[in-house]
Amino acid sequence: MGQVTYVSFDGEQTVVDVPNGDNLMQAAIDNGISGILGDCGGGCACATCHCIVDDAWAAKTGEPDEIELDMLDGVVDPKPNSRLSCQITMSDELEGLVIHLPESQF
């Protein structure tokens, strides 16, 4: 279990507790956070759970794999730290993680 801060496009911060092993798309859905859709349920098939990892955390969340990179290529306004939140799994190392949400998922 660790805390993750979701920052909406408007700057509103929501801090949620995320169990280790859960992905950050699911955690957003579980906590009713708007701005993350997750239409495909975490299958890396829809890219509607796009988030931007805070610069300070980019190294710790790891690199997207090839499929995720390809999906990210098509999201609205991709950034260097863009990730699909369904592909980030909570762990002790990510305690305190901050992620930013885009203006739109499509």
């Binding site: 890396c44 098939a45 890219a47 390809d70 999906m71 290529d73 098509g74 999201v75 499509f106």
Partner: peptide, 11 residues
């Protein structure tokens, strides 16, 4: 197996 094509195809 072409997620990149898919994302562009949607547009």
């Amino acid at each position: 197996n072409r997620p990149k094509d898919f994302m562009v195809a949607k547009k």
